[in-house]
């Protein structure tokens, strides 16, 4: 794979990480391209071999799927691999002001490797491993595919503004957000890192099936202390085209799907915030 050299005229460059059991790469790529990014799909083996590669991108994407079969626990094995082989590169990537998004399995990976939530601004080092939150089995004990309403409760993330209501699907078995008992959740709320919560169609906090997995405090997505790393269980890349909506035959076709906002915000952030800084 050959990479184009970066100039501000170019489109922001996104890298979708691939490994055994990655899926959702096709539609994630489509969403990013539609939002204006230049996208490469890169296998983790290649990234580990050529560590400098990561630096040529602006948006790092961990897509959905079942990496390594979700053996042991969802996202665990890739999280372990990234922590031990690419942690420095990823930390530098974030420190450089670049963006990271993990969707579904990607969120599970970010949480389990500790890149999220990074509450005190410190990124995890490979020596001290701590995990303050986790994503575990749904209360229903099974995989579920259903559409959910999300509301953004903070303006900390560069991926979404506050008070947006999004309709997107979830498709997972291990998406219940759980916190440790040392006040982690409170801190997360205080620092504005709780980005998405599951709500009903009017935007109110509600129980199953609105909260599809029993997540603590209805949490569907969180960001890190910089606002540049986002993890979320629902799949925004599955609602880009208006015909993806489950009721478009009733409600009519919208101009575009709700999910595009997240990718477009990311692309625009790179163009407006990162590239402006450079002469």
């Amino acid at each position: 794979m050959t990479l184009k050299t970066e100039t501000p005229d170019n489109k922001p460059k996104a890298i979708i990480l691939r490994t055994a059991g990655t899926n959702c790469d096709y539609e994630t790529r489509y969403a990013l391209e539609k939002a204006g990014a230049d996208v490469d799909l890169v296998h983790v083996n290649q990234l580990v071999k050529d560590k400098g590669l990561l630096g040529s991108y602006h948006i790092f994407v961990l897509p959905g799927g079942f990496t390594y079969g979700d053996d042991i626990a969802a996202g665990k094995v890739l999280a372990n691999q990234l922590r031990h082989h690419l942690l420095d590169e990823l930390t530098r990537f974030v420190d450089d002001g670049k963006l990271v998004i993990g969707i579904c399995n990607g969120f599970q990976v970010l949480i389990k490797m500790g890149l999220l939530p990074g509450i005190n601004g410190t990124q995890p080092s490979s020596n001290e491993y701590r995990q303050e939150f986790t994503l575990t089995y749904n209360d229903s004990n099974k995989f579920e595919d259903r559409w959910v309403y999300l509301k953004s409760f903070s303006d900390k993330s560069v991926f979404i503004d506050k008070d947006c209501l999004l309709y997107v699907p979830i498709a997972h078995a291990e998406g219940k957000f759980v916190a440790g008992d040392g006040g982690e959740l409170e801190n997360l709320g205080k620092s504005g890192q709780i980005i998405f919560k599951y709500v009903d169609k009017d935007g109110n906090i509600a129980n199953y099936p609105w909260n599809p997995n029993g997540s603590l405090d209805n949490i569907a997505g969180i960001c890190d202390s910089t606002g540049r790393v986002l993890g979320m269980m629902p799949h925004p890349e599955r609602y880009i085209e208006p015909t993806q909506h489950p009721r478009w035959t009733r409600e009519g076709l919208k101009a575009e799907g709700d999910g595009i906002a997240i990718f477009r915000n990311a692309v625009n952030y790179v163009k407006e915030k990162m590239w402006q800084k450079r002469p």
Binding site: N23, C24, Y26, E27, Y30, G64, K142, F143, E144, D145, R146, W147, P169, A171, E237, R238, I240, E241, T243, Q244, P246, R247, T249, R250
Partner: peptide
């Protein structure tokens, strides 16, 4: 049964197996 299958991965679904006001 249907909900346990991921029926929209790859993003192509236009008409899903479950339809109507409450999906």
């Amino acid at each position: 049964v249907i909900r346990q299958y991921d029926h929209e991965v790859q993003g192509g679904s236009v008409l899903k197996p479950l339809q109507g006001v409450d999906n």
